[in-house]
């Protein structure tokens, strides 16, 4: 990947240093057409996109309230149909907007099979407000509202959306830019509701060196913590087989797992195995 190619992204965004979500937009903006409508609900990108009147990605962009991304996108798509406009409508939402407050609207837009690409930049907590727990926060992670560590699993949004039978779901990581861009391109070629989950580490919220964003993302993939998948019309495919490094190597980089004791770590591993068994079952079903 040519690191100097910033696509439609301008220099001078105002994300934290090392922001995985900013890096993800740089990659996505290399493959989306410039007339793509980008809908940004409340989240880190409400800020990163730029202060008035700045815009750090050269696309028509609208900021919306938290739970409103799918509502706006639905109306925009319908209006574009009236104008015979075929510009993609792309929601660019964080995990708070996706897994939590906008989840009902997301499920509904998927059920209606709205012709929208929904991209979630997942940094596993409410990072814009200073690292509070979301339902995307993984088991065992510290956040400011889980000072005694999160006890529940990360919500499996991919499985839930897969049950909606939408045309395309993919997960991608900023550590694998070619794979990420390839999946966005593939989504652009399809129509109907498309969902892409991007793994975008947050050095600020994960209490991690700013230089370790890509490294953390890579270790998450290699440890199987963030599986790289595609689901087309309900059919699962693992697009990258992890090398199964110990999760501890991924944990070590970050402050948010430092209080997780041995028992916690083995519980995390059990949960991980369980999740992968479910993925393998779905992959196997696909071959029947």
């Amino acid at each position: 990947m040519d690191l100097t190619d910033c696509g439609l992204m301008e220099p001078g965004h105002i994300a934290c240093a090392g922001c995985g979500a900013a890096l993800a937009m740089k990659m996505v903006s290399r493959v989306i057409p410039e007339e793509t409508r980008v809908v940004v609900p409340a989240g880190c990108w409400s800020i990163i996109m730029g202060r008035h009147p700045d815009l750090c990605v050269r696309v028509p962009n609208v900021h919306t309230p938290f739970a409103l991304a799918c509502g706006f996108a639905t109306g925009m798509r319908a209006a574009l149909r009236r104008k015979n406009g075929d510009s993609p409508v792309l929601v660019w939402a964080g995990d708070g907007a996706t897994y939590d407050i906008g989840f009902g609207a997301l499920s509904a837009a998927a059920e209606r099979n709205e012709d929208i690409i929904y991209v979630c930049y997942d940094n596993e907590a409410y990072m814009n407000t200073g690292a509070q727990r979301s339902s995307s926060t993984p088991y065992g992670a510290w956040t400011t509202t889980t000072p005694d560590l999160k006890r529940e699993d990360k919500k499996d949004v991919v499985f839930i959306l897969a049950e909606h039978g939408i045309p395309y779901i993919a997960t991608a990581s900023v550590s694998h830019p070619d794979d990420l861009m390839k999946k966005v391109k593939k989504a652009l070629r399809k129509s109907g509701f498309r969902f892409i989950l991007l793994f975008t580490p947050c050095p600020t919220g994960w209490m991690m060196e700013e230089s370790q964003t890509v490294n953390a993302a890579r270790l998450a993939v290699e440890a199987g913590v963030f599986p790289l998948l595609e689901v087309e019309n309900g059919v699962f495919r693992v697009t990258y087989e992890p090398s199964w490094i110990p999760v501890e190597r991924y944990f070590e980089l970050q402050g948010r797992f430092k209080d997780l004791d041995e028992k916690g770590v083995s519980s995390f591993k059990e949960r991980l195995e369980r999740r992968w068994r479910r993925i393998r079952e779905r992959v196997k079903d696909a071959h029947l």
Partner: peptide, 12 residues
């Protein structure tokens, strides 16, 4: 979502 979609259409 209804009022959001109204807003989305107007934005276009």
């Amino acid at each position: 979502t209804a009022i959001g979609a109204v807003a989305g259409a107007l934005v276009e």
